[in-house]
Design a binder for these strands. Sequence first.
DNA 1: CACGTGTTGAT
DNA 2: TCAACACGT
Length: 477
Amino acid sequence: MASSTETSIVWLRDDLRLDDNPALSEAAALGMPLTVVYILDEDSEGVRPLGGATKWWLHHSLASLAGALEAKGSSLLLRRGPAEEIIRELAAETNARHLFWNRRYGQPERTVDAAVKAWATESGLQASSYQANLLFEPWTVRTGAGGPYKVFTPFWRACLAGADIRDPLQVPGTLPAPPKRTGTVQAGDTLDGWELLPSAPDWSGGLAAVWDPGEDGARRRLEDFLDGPAEEYGTGRNIPGVEGTSRLSPHLRFGEVSPFRVWRQIRRRYPNKVPADVGIFRSELGWREFCWHLLYTNPDLATRNYRPDFDRFEWEKPGKDELEAWQQGRTGYPFVDAGMRQLWQTGWMHNRVRMAAASFLVKNLLTDWRVGETWFWDTLVDADAASNPANWQWVAGSGADASPYYRIFNPVTQSKKFDAAGTYLRHFIPELADLDGKAIHEPWKSGVELAEYPRPLVDLPESRERALEAYQKLRDS
DNA sequence: CACGTGTTGAT
DNA sequence: TCAACACGT
């Protein structure tokens, strides 16, 4: 027998925040006893399981969210399993009449949400969904011909031309308490019981040293960035040895900060004219939107070439040693290796270095981009279902608005150009600490015998030629 | 956002 | 003589 009091449910997913959370605000305004639930769904068809680094992040983000909800008189219920089934059970337990969530844009998730909505409608529950995590929902941005965009610049221009970006909502003052625990209302899981944190070994020390998952950490990052490097973003973002980027990516990935909030904070600071460098940062938000636009129209973006002609591309099967050298940062090219070690240690890699490290795997080692995408999915704290595959395909040349095939990043040139003094290299490759600013980019030329640092895995001009031939062959066929 | 080649123009 | 730039792949 269910409790007779009518209640409502907010189902949180990739929107782990109280600020600018339309589903939560609407539910709070209703005033009914409110269950706030997060479901760890590893069972619904097609939902991509989290990687190791995102599991670590999720644990801490949920802990932070639970604390914030409790401070407002609410709490966070944790459940695990196929989401549709869990919601149905929970609705029955709590005698729920209303169901709220913020929309998702991946195909498997949308299928789940549609099924829940259909069931709710049949069962006399009111299900309401909201736009919260993208400034422009994918189906609202269309070319003149009515199709999806394939190139970023016109996509973003079209977005901004019709820009109607709402103001973010405030954090609700108080939240309704959850329904009283009666015989019908089951307890939730414990966060520790989900075992999202690594143990044996616990490799998360480097992540904890750099990151502060949760809404407070996200807000601080945003303010620090806007107070600090934002106005020099155009140049600063290219220098991996300094903090020139926002580092908001994992916070946006988990919805700890809303893109509407980011947009609003920029407008507040620059009510008249947004400086060019801040505009560049804003266009990076645009790339996030574009990636979701691409995933929405190409649900299998992570497994299939966006450009089908690439299905004929002849990738090399990577040798175990080669692949491990790349993964562990032992290719012999310091710029690539520093990046791969930064990724392993901190769960994040500077974007400039991501491009170089990805290009090295795909072009110099001729490895299928999916191999790299999978590695990043497991190791990045910002691993995003849209951005990760879209950007790997961009590097490989198989994607939308892709890097031209003849653009093969030269890790030595990149290194000399963007880390001239070797600050970044020295930080992540202690073996090279004694080499001077010039020698550090090409340690094999230094004449110093480095017992701890490998010689180059492949010759750059030779592997470059090999890649150009493979790409040329695809063009000709 | 690569690189080779060719052109230009400052020194 | 050579850095800066334009151009094509």
